[in-house]
């Protein structure tokens, strides 16, 4: 690691001020991506602004049909939260499948979506459940938050404070994981929400995306069979040593079908 300064502010305002005061600062959440990146000398921030002491980023609440999770809540706490399990079991299931126990004990919701790794799980939940991202400056709809591979609508110094997930009528997440990294080769969140049917895919493309053809088919007939003849074109999907784009396209259908079958 290159050397860096370290600050641990107590409030969101202090965190933003600390970020602005440094030439090339980076926010540190759980560090499960950032610290390995620093160790490989792929980044050289002038300072790390540790968000661990910000109370505003903590806590899980359920009220008025909305589950709100603080950006600093770790995956392990979402996975075991009785409130989340009762309101949106698919979200607790998703959190329980991130990485491994040690990663889930450190990694956070805010860190995951701010990083927007194309194979991360949480983007599928945020888009699939039509969540709203509350930042230190504004509210951002899920559809506008994820803008590209490792890119989001966040401005420099803007930090995720919490994410609110409207409770869907039903939802399920299915993931074909890389057995070594446990990142999603393909992960699919299927949700029937107040605003309609949503199918969100992570792992397959450069950034999380929805599948309108599947959503239309499920709106007509919510059954695994409804997806049988739908092909997702592989043209813009990822290809790497783990899977070809054609294989990923195929997996989208398989994972979506399994998700629907589990809640139909």
């Amino acid at each position: 690691m290159y050397a860096f300064d370290y600050k641990r502010p107590k409030t969101v305002a202090e965190a933003e001020a600390a970020f602005a005061a440094d030439s090339d600062a980076a926010f540190l959440a759980g560090g499960q991506t950032l610290i390995p990146t620093l160790k490989q000398r792929l980044r050289q921030p002038s300072a790390l602004i540790d968000l661990a002491a910000l109370d505003a980023l903590k806590g899980i609440t359920v009220a008025d049909g909305i589950v709100t999770i603080g950006a600093g809540v770790c995956h392990a706490d979402v996975a075991v939260s009785a409130d989340v399990r009762k309101a949106i079991p698919a979200l607790a299931d998703l959190a329980a499948q991130v990485g491994d126990p040690q990663v889930r004990n450190r990694g956070t919701l805010g860190g995951s979506i701010a990083n927007n790794d194309p194979a991360a799980d949480y983007p599928a939940a945020v888009v699939g459940l039509d969540a709203t991202v509350h930042t230190s400056r504004r509210e951002i709809a899920a559809a506008a938050f994820f803008t590209g591979m490792f890119e989001t609508a966040l401005e420099p110094g803007e930090l995720v404070v919490k994410v609110s997930f409207p409770i869907p009528r039903r939802a399920a997440y299915q993931k074909f994981r890389n057995p070594a990294s446990r990142y999603a080769v393909v992960g699919v969140m299927v949700a029937e929400t107040a605003g309609g049917m949503r199918v969100a895919v992570t792992g397959a493309g450069p950034c999380v995306f929805r599948v309108p053809t599947m959503e239309a088919a499920l709106a007509m007939n919510f059954s695994a069979g409804a997806l049988q003849n739908i092909q997702v074109p592989p043209d813009d999907l990822n290809a790497d040593l783990h899977a070809t784009s054609e294989y990923r396209a195929h997996l989208i259908g398989v994972m979506a079908t399994r998700a629907v079958a589990s809640i139909a």
């Binding site: 499960q32 390995p36 790390l48 392990a76 004990n105 450190r106």
Partner: peptide, 9 residues
């Protein structure tokens, strides 16, 4: 809680 000490400062 179990954590990886190589990935914690």
């Amino acid at each position: 809680r179990s954590v990886k000490a190589c990935t914690t400062l």
